[in-house]
Every structure is written in C-alpha cells, then in structure tokens.
Amino acid sequence: MEALQTKAKELLAAGTVQVAIGYGKGTGNARRPLFVTKPERAADLIVDAACTQNLATYLTKHEVRVMGRMAVVAVPSTLRSILQLAAEKQIREEQVLALAVIDGQVRELATFEAIEEAVATIPDAMSEADRNMIDKLSAMSVPERRAFWADELVRCVKCYACRASCPMCYCERCTTDVNRPQWIPVASHAVGNLEYHVMRAMHLAGRCVECGTCGKACPVGIPVHLLTIYAEDSVRRQFGQRGGASAKLDYAMSTFKPDDKEEFIR
C-alpha cells in the first residue's frame, strides 16, 4: 500500500499525471473510488482485498479526462479494460498510465505493450463462486434456465447501475435510450427486463473483461455479470479470442478471417 502511495505521489509531484484514480475509504469497510489530484493526498489511497471495483469505468468520462493524464490503480480486469478501450479507439496511450496491483506488488505500466505483457501472464480471473454458478446454470435444462432467469430478472428495477458501472458501456447514447423506435421498453416488466439484459450480454460478447463489477453494482442482487461472462466465455470457445487481450484486437463478433474454422462462412 505504501509503495502505491509513494508511486502516486511521485507521479503527481513530477506532473507525469494530473490525476490518480484509486480506492479510498468508504462507509464502514467498503471502498469507494478516489480521485487524487494533489501529491499530498496520495496517502489516502488504499489497496486491499476489498478493492474490487473496476476503475477503468472512469477513464472514458469527460469530467475525469479534462483533468489531464490519468493514473489508474488497476486490478487485473482493469488492465484488460484499458486494452479493450484502446482497441475500440476510446483511449490513447498518452492519456493513461496503469498502476497495476498484481499479487500485492505495484507495477507502473506506461505503455499498452507493457499492459499486454502483464495481462498475458494473468490467469482466468473468474471467482470460484461465479465458476460454480456458471457450471450449475450450464447443467440446467433450457426451461430450467429460463425459469431461473425469469425469477431473477423480474426483480430488476431498470436502475441501469450495471450499465453505469461497466467500463465497456461508454456509449454516449445507449440503445436503451433510443426511443425512435423504442427497441427496449422503458418500464420494468418481465419481457422488457429480459430484452434489456439479453441486449447487454450480446453487446458485451467478445468485449467483456469479466470484472464482475456489474453484478456487484446491482442493488437487488441479480447476478447479471454471469450473463456477460458466459457470453464472453462462448466467444472465447468459438473464436479463441479474449476481450481485452490486446490493444489491437479485432472484434470477434464482426471480424472475418480467411482461416475461419467454419467452412460455410468462407
């Protein structure tokens, strides 16, 4: 933790970055995002097991960007977010610097190449609880699974916290907000909720970095992250490609490669 504070202080003092995005003390034992702009406040930064939110969400926010170059305290999924954002032309190398926290060590990663190298060594990030849940869902029959999700999604209040917390949901106008035509119904009801969550999962297939932040953000406790993680997992199985693996990644869902394993598409 001290290493991180020192590093952030140095970077801010030297003017290498103008803001450090990290974790600070929240209510009780919770952690909340902290935006440090002055070197002397770097001591407020915290790193511990409770710091799990994917802070990459803030990298695309206009309010944060105008401050200048950003250093971001990065858990492994944050690093993948940065690369995926770069692949989608949402962030440039000179705009961001990652302070990666890997196995308790703090590493400064200033280039996409360095981040790519770090990401390549990080194993699958899925928690055991999530893995068990996905295995359990995969084992269900289709009607059972449908019943499970119908039961879960009926509680959704369409607060869009999942969308707001997701680093890959950076669109200025979400499909949900399109009202000519109204693809996704505004009101919270069974069919509309399902449409929204299926749409979200489809939009993240091949792009999801599996941070699980959306699931944690849900105020009614729906495991929405399982939908996107499963979609991402399917893309990995089908196309052998992982969202956020490289800053030059082609989008698996829209890219044709001459060596595609499916004959019919060629």
Binding site: E88, K89, Q90, Y170, C171, E172, R173, D250, Y251, M253, S254, T255, F256
Partner: peptide
Amino acid sequence: SCVGCFLCKSACP
C-alpha cells in the same frame, strides 16, 4: 451519437 469504436469497420464487407 457515434462513439467512434469502429467495430462497424471490421464488420463491413
């Protein structure tokens, strides 16, 4: 409303 992700670019045949 385009955010310039250019995922359409690779999709376009």
